[in-house]
């Protein structure tokens, strides 16, 4: 296969970027999308040019590091997979493929197709955990959890934190990401003690990071490689309003308290 690539090139966060056109030649349909980029990068390197920088690591769809907005869709045209799981046979010979980084104010470009997603980490740090220290926990089987709850919590917990939801959302909203963690811990008995403070903390941090707000378009759900559902957002909203309007708990502030 021979392809034309239009790729966003940007030297660093402070530079302005532009689209640059490359030829990708002799591409095997068996290649993954990232392997196709590897080939292009090898040829760029041999010419002494700087290779295209993109985030990637596990290349099996679980680490959440790869991104890429391909022809108008995060992780490319296929459902429920990440870019590293996308194969070139999903494209046709001679096609022009436009590759852009995730676009969001909260995800500034680091270089080329790589963006800084540390906002996601900070949201998790604000409350995406159960406050238990190592040791001194009860036996794992002491609290039975209905299978349906455990399974649903698992579904929410499969989020890989790739940011496709933000990239797909017309408002660059992070609601699907935040709600997946809020839901997971909110459903499990272990997460109950901090349920009402957690949701407030995480939403406050989400707002601080400058993500847009949700208008329930469902684009995030459609593009999520792990098929996290909008139900999570709904659960989070419910918990948030309940916490804000009817509960005693406030935004929890754990900072500095530890010994």
């Amino acid at each position: 296969m021979n392809l034309t690539l239009k790729v966003w090139r940007q030297k660093d966060a402070n530079s302005t970027g532009k689209m640059v056109t490359y030829k990708a030649e002799n591409i095997s349909p068996d290649m993954s999308f990232l392997e196709m980029l590897d080939v292009v990068n090898e040829s760029l390197t041999l010419k002494g040019d700087e290779p295209i920088y993109f985030d990637h690591d596990c290349r099996e769809g679980i680490c959440g590091m790869c991104s890429l907005y391909i022809n108008g869709r995060p992780h490319g045209p296929k459902r429920a997979i990440t870019t590293c799981q996308l194969h070139m046979r999903s494209f046709h010979d001679g096609e022009t493929i436009t590759i852009e980084p995730w676009r969001a104010a909260s995800f500034p470009v680091i270089k080329d197709l790589t963006v800084d997603r540390s906002a996601f980490d900070r949201i998790q740090q604000a409350g995406g955990y159960v406050s238990v220290n190592t040791g001194g926990v009860p036996d794992a089987n002491i609290i039975p959890i209905p299978k349906v709850i455990a399974d649903e919590a698992f579904n929410s917990a499969t989020c890989i934190g790739c940011g496709a939801c933000v990239a797909a959302c017309k408002n660059a909203s992070a609601m699907l990401f935040v709600s997946a963690k809020v839901s997971q811990l909110g459903m499990l008995p272990q997460g109950q003690p901090e349920r009402w403070s957690r949701v407030q903390s995480m939403v406050a941090q989400m707002d601080e990071e400058g993500f847009g707000s949700c208008t329930n378009t469902g684009a995030c759900e459609a593009e999520c490689p792990k098929e996290i559902t909008l139900t999570n957002i709904s659960r989070m909203n419910n918990d948030f309003f309940s916490a804000k309007l009817f509960r005693e708990e406030k935004v929890h502030d754990h900072s500095g308290g530890g010994e």
Binding site: N71, R73, A104, G210, T217
Partner: peptide, 29 residues
């Protein structure tokens, strides 16, 4: 207010118009 804030959340637009499936009305409220 929300629309303006949401616009600000994506200061640089995509070169290719989104093809993510979402209903027309939801995107044009």
């Amino acid at each position: 207010v929300l629309t303006l804030k949401n616009r600000k959340a994506r200061p640089v637009a995509y070169a290719v118009q989104t093809k993510s499936p979402a209903s027309w009305s939801s995107k044009n409220m």
